[in-house]
Design a binder for these strands. Structure first.
Length: 671
DNA sequence: ATAGGGTTAG
């Protein structure tokens, strides 16, 4: 490569050549030194720019310091170089030292602060500027737009128009993207009218921004129209915008179709859009599959966004093994673990019931934000560790992190699951403006500790209309404490608020059943029939060899089904010898008449556990995820299994973790 | 001939 620079080139061409061959800058630099051209005022500037862009920025600084005289161009390119590497201190130092600043200097500072998400200083700088060019306005506008400050961007745009500066194409791109952030259809329409009236020339940047705006404002047809019109002109950004448009509305089939049609798959954003699309639409397994394909292809390197989506998917699945594989791969890919990634790790470990790991990550972090706290607190809440959740709330205060509404929901839920009534009440009292969800948590807490009348009183004193969650907690508590009166009260409200939620009918029916009121059980069953309420399909899943194995009640579709039922049969025999009597009532109540025989003892939880016993390492922890509540019969059964097999079994249901060990369960729910 | 501003993913 060096040879190609040995030909005679007019020195005036050097800056252009250096720029177009950035990666060969150092070779070039050596060559220029040999020619003694280093101190040419243009070339020197370009070389500083080159090192400022590709690094090491210290080399840029050395050149800058060695210059006999420095023009404003040199100062500007040096400051810009520091901002490229996020070195705010040095950029500010040089800026303060500079004698003759120009509009470019000021604009560089505005952009620099904005890139570091320091919009306050960016704006301060912008306001202090002695003069502003259209580029300065664009820099400030882009800063707001890129940091999600739609309102500020809109206000600034008004100021810009008022001060008589004519917006150019780049201005419009930022204004459109700010509008997309708000997802306001009316605003989008007026903006489009404005652009049409002014007869703005629409380049691919503006068209992509418009595409995204329409998609985010709910007009996917319009977005697709722009995409189709762009045709061959579509670049990876417009492809990605269209893919995420489909992903956003949950149309993953169309998203994947587009993704597969993309000419190049070397843009990490495309992969991230698809992976996040799956992850956010409850298709965690598909998200992980695509991530694996990405890792295999090696066309792109994962980044922070990839990591967050995939770790979140592993968490939702309860796939600890996969999660650890992902972490290993991320480390191999040498991406640095940002705070967001650490937060995602806390989430993943918490959701997998590995609270020790979640805690370790939490304390490993250099600094924690409210998300870190909320994630760990919510983990402890699901796990039923009320004391640790409350301790974290205190720690937040010491660390100067302010709790938000999610924090309090977490701490209250933790107190509720742990039966910490006194602490819970104290926390509830300390909330400045408790919202509806905080009331729901408090009703849940009172219900769990058996203070059902107080719970009802709290509902009646709420300053807002209670939602389904509030009555749902009361209904659950009514089942636990066999309070038919309150159960009926709560269920009546729930049948109005969410007539399609089968869980409410089942709960009320179970309350009647627990008291032997079979006629009422039949009435509820009839109610479900006339209202055409479909029971939510319950499933349990367990991870094995990087895949989730999912079971439904009476499932015989698994390839190891024969073995699973054999294990189950032996297990049931051992359990009966140990004194276990299947709660046929509980089982039969949940299934249709003709399926009764088939179903007894083969709820999804039991199938998942039997499979795990079949394939897992002896003595290892068994982790099961269930999409609904663990049924009372299975709860009893799993306790016995944990004792007989001497295995720790962790079940995450839609409410909380149950850790079964030596025949006892961590949850203190009364069945 | 050299310095500052644009669209997509969490």
């Amino acid at each position: 490569m060096q040879r190609r620079y040995n030909m005679m080139i007019d020195p005036s061409m050097y800056p252009i050549l250096i720029k177009s061959n950035g990666e060969y800058g150092i070779v070039f630099h050596a060559h220029l030194l040999k020619l003694g051209l280093e101190f040419d005022k243009y070339i020197g500037n370009v070389m500083i720019g080159l090192y400022g862009k590709y690094g090491p920025v210290e080399d840029a600084r050395r050149l800058f310091d060695e210059m006999s005289e420095r023009s404003v161009f040199d100062w500007n390119v040096m400051i810009s170089g520091y901002w490229n590497w996020g070195n705010k201190e040095e950029a500010e130092k040089l800026f303060d030292l500079m004698m003759e600043k120009n509009v470019v200097t000021w604009t560089t500072m505005v952009t620099g602060y904005a890139r570091m998400k320091d919009l306050d200083n960016a704006r301060k700088c912008f306001d202090k500027m002695p003069e502003r060019s259209v580029v300065s306005w664009n820099a400030m506008l882009a800063g707001y737009a890129q940091n999600g400050l739609a309102k500020e961007a809109a206000l600034l745009f008004d100021d810009m128009v008022d001060s008589g500066v004519k917006p150019n194409e780049k201005t419009w791109v930022s204004v459109i993207s700010a509008c997309s952030l708000r997802g306001d259809l009316a605003l989008a329409k007026s903006l489009e009218t404005m652009i049409n009236d002014k007869q703005i020339r629409l380049n691919v940047f503006i068209k992509s921004a418009l595409l995204d705006m329409h998609a985010k404002c709910g007009n996917i047809m319009m977005a697709k129209k722009i995409f189709d019109e762009l045709g061959e002109s579509n670049n990876s950004v417009s492809w990605n915008a269209m893919i995420s448009a489909y992903a956003r509305i949950g149309d993953l089939t169309s998203a994947k179709e587009l993704f597969d049609q993309m000419p190049d798959k070397n843009d990490i954003v495309s992969w991230n859009s698809m992976i996040a699309g799956y992850a956010q639409n409850g298709q965690s397994a598909a998200a992980i599959e695509l991530f694996k394909e990405m890792a295999k292809n090696r066309l792109v390197t994962p980044d922070e966004v990839t990591a967050i989506s995939v770790l979140s998917a592993c968490g939702h699945l309860g796939a600890l093994g996969l999660g650890n594989d992902v972490i290993r791969y991320l480390r191999e890919s040498q991406i640095d673990f940002s705070r967001s990634i650490y937060n995602a790790l806390i989430f993943m470990y918490s959701k997998c019931g590995s609270m020790k790991d979640a805690e370790n990550i939490f304390y490993e972090m250099k600094s924690r934000d409210v998300i870190s706290y909320n994630t760990l607190i919510t983990g402890f809440a699901t796990y039923g560790n009320g004391k640790k959740a409350v301790k974290l709330l205190w720690k937040m205060d010491q660390e100067g992190v302010s709790p938000d509404r999610i924090t309090f929901i977490g701490v209250l839920t933790a107190c509720s699951h742990a039966g910490l009534s006194r602490e819970g009440r104290k926390v509830f009292k300390s909330i400045q403006n408790p919202d509806i969800d905080h009331y729901a948590c408090m009703v849940d807490l009172l219900g769990r500790v058996g203070e059902l009348d107080e719970a009802k009183y709290l509902i009646e004193s709420m300053p807002m209309a209670p939602h389904a969650g509030v009555y749902g907690s009361l209904l659950s508590a009514s089942r636990t404490y066999k309070r038919i009166d309150l159960g009926e009260f709560a269920a009546t409200k729930l049948f109005e608020l969410e007539p399609d939620n089968s869980g409410n009918y089942v709960l009320l029916s179970n309350i009647y059943a627990s008291e032997g009121r079979w006629t009422d059980v039949e009435t509820i069953r009839g109610l479900m029939k006339t209202h055409r309420v479909k029971k939510t399909g319950a499933w349990s899943s367990v991870e094995y060899k990087g895949k989730m194995h999912k079971f439904i009640v009476g499932d015989r579709s698994h390839e190891r089904s024969g073995d699973i039922y054999q294990i189950l049969k032996e297990l049931m025999k051992k359990m009966q010898d140990a004194g276990y009597i299947a709660d046929k009532g509980a089982v039969l109540r949940d299934v249709e008449e003709e399926e009764k025989e088939e179903m007894v003892g083969v709820h999804s939880e039991k199938l998942a556990i039997a499979f795990a016993l079949l394939v897992s390492e002896p003595g290892g922890v068994i982790r099961v995820v269930k999409n609904l509540r663990v049924c009372s019969d299975c709860h009893t059964a799993i306790k016995i299994i944990s004792r007989l097999e001497n295995r720790e079994i962790i079940v995450r249901d839609n409410n909380r973790f149950h850790t079964f060990h030596h025949g006892i369960c961590s949850c203190n729910d009364f069945w």
